[in-house]
Write a protein that binds this DNA or RNA. Structure first.
Lengths: 189, 189
DNA sequence: TAATACTGAACGAACATTCAATCTAGTTGA
DNA sequence: TCAACTAGATTGAATGTTCGTTCAGTATTA
């Protein structure tokens, strides 16, 4: 029972490794099979096709990420602290997982991406959105539409982690704190 | 002489249209030829191959964008006004040109992208970087590394324009001004 | 008449996908 | 206990298609 899940995950992991190295168009199914140590045919036992494999990989990573964010949520803290903590967690997570973050960036900008895909995984991100909503109700942060808040905080985090992974920037703990300060200044009331 | 430039540009424009619809991997050379109204072979007269075509398209768009930014630069204004103006110009430009911005986003996240590509076009962005540098020297904005300043301002602009184009958000003139305010709060000293 | 622009059929490589055959592990029945 | 059976897992060669690229030949321009 565990073994069949293992093989599915081995295929997903192999896909992740190849895509962040070669992109979608450089990732052939035969190469995924080789990288995962399985035969080419078996991929179609676990996935409907290449598109489905990509979609499932996205969901798999998004789910892992969402669970991790939920874990590190401390709802006893004041909202300001919660938001700042969450930003720190995100930046550090992206830095520690360049393969994952590279893939997410590529996927969300590709024609594979559609908003329906996020429906299943969006539940994991509820606490995060609720956090922003409550902060808006309490007039702690500005009353921007949700995508604007995201752009000013979460997207900054992914953008910086990307540059860090590419070697354009060295994100030290001190600099991360300063970036969190800056994001907070952007959204605070 | 003009005619050969016209055909080159027709090919670039056709490539742009197809990529923002189908992505890199869904954009075949034969389809580019059809879309541009030329034969398949002639593309290889103007470009060394598919990779070169993509690189040249990136440079072409970056150059157009850079020239436009330079035009709208008013160096008689105080630095704060200059930076805010520039952000407004960027956001509006991206919104008005969804094909271009979608392509830039996709390309810079793809394995095609390498930092050497930007060398040729980076000259057009000098005034912009100089503007930030001077503001840092005059202690008007925080002394962040250049990629951090970019993430907190230009990347926010592209990220929002993307969401606007995708229909997740309606960027009114009023909201754009508020976003510029927020970006400014993030970087100001 | 020479150089350059252009065509489109042709080619080989790469690719996603299929499938008949084989293997594996779990279940049944005597 | 074990042979027979079965269903799912797995293989990898084969298939048909698509794609990037080439090139011999034709048109255009100066």
């Amino acid at each position: 029972m565990d073994q069949i899940e293992d093989k599915r995950i081995a295929i997903l992991d192999a896909t992740l490794r190849l895509i962040s190295k070669n992109g979608f168009h450089g990732t052939a199914m035969s190469k995924v099979a080789k990288e995962a140590g399985v035969s080419a045919g078996i991929i179609y036992h676990y996935f409907a096709g290449k598109d489905d494999l990509m979609d499932e990989l996205y969901k798999y990573i998004k789910r892992k990420f969402g669970l991790m964010i939920n874990e590190s949520f401390d709802q006893t803290q004041p909202l300001k602290i919660q938001i700042r903590q969450m930003l720190g967690v995100m930046i550090r997570y992206y830095i520690q997982r360049p393969l994952e973050s590279t893939f997410l960036e590529q996927y969300t900008r590709s024609p594979y991406y559609n908003s329906e895909i996020d429906l299943e995984t969006s539940q994991y991100y509820m606490p995060l959105l609720k956090c922003f909503q409550q902060a808006q109700q309490e007039m702690i942060i500005k009353d921007f539409p949700e995508p604007v808040v995201t752009a000013l905080t979460l997207d900054v985090a992914t953008s910086l982690a990307q540059r860090h992974a590419a070697g354009f920037l060295n994100l030290t703990d001190e600099l991360i704190e300063q970036v969190i300060d800056a994001c907070w200044e952007a959204i605070r009331q």
